[in-house]
Amino acid sequence: MNDPKLKNREKSVWFSVLFDFHRTKTLKRLLVSMLLVGAYAFVVDYIESEMLHIDFRPPSYVYSMLGIVLGILLVFRTNTAYDRWWEGRKLLSKLGYNWKNVALKLNAFLPANDQENRKYFAAMIANHSYSLKESLRNGVKKHELVEAEPGMLDNLDKIYHVPNYFAAGICNRFNELYKRGVITDMQFLELSKHIDDASEVVSSCERIHTSPIPFSYAIHLKKFLFAFVLILPFGFIHDLGYWCILIVMLIFYAMVGLDVIGEEIEDPFGQDENDLPFDAICKSLKKSVNEILIQPTVNEFVKA
């Protein structure tokens, strides 16, 4: 993998979180809610200390009883979300190695001078992965695709599902090569298997993209968090006075932030910082497939 974009693991100073955290999406989504929570804490504080003086102090184990279960729930939430994110990454690997295997086999099966077919397959494989990327982002980008055959991309907007269109093209060409006797029946079977795997990757990615975590689970967690935040100020008011506003806001950020991160990473095929480097993966797949199929040096060693 020579693509610099794939190596986005920055070795940063651990403390840099202090200076960078304002850039994260979590904060953006939470800012208004944090201010609301702060305002709520202020109101509770003001009413209690200036007007009512009820001196209402729930025992601390009230918080810890809720806290234990809430903690478990949050762990589970982020864990399943990460699980999907990682499954998405594994699927993209599968997409890559599946097509690379096709290219490797084709390179061995096809005659070295059959530039037409080699170029065709290299283009179609790249098209399939690029179009899968865009179909998960609800669209199609024509400029990323290669015209493997004249007129192939003309009616792209009329096609219901573009990745299938390219997969069907590849399948067609396998069959044609087999019928013409360019490849033998065993070689054909060997290639044809990979069409099923490509279909499976497509539909699994679509599954991750279209099915969020079950609704009642997501909403139960949110209600739980909300209730927890609602009773939170009462634990601090008497000891901390107005400082409790800050503490409540911080606890809110830390806890609800986890929920937001879960939502953020469970659909990993978008374009923001937390999503998978799908563009870079497509680019590197395209490069290696081109290298395998089109650059002739690879075949020099095997001449009998």
């Binding site: 997969a167 069907a168 069409i195 539909s203 699994s204």
Partner: peptide, 12 residues
Amino acid sequence: ALNESFVMKART
């Protein structure tokens, strides 16, 4: 996925 690739192959 299986259904799609089955039909795709059958078509070809």
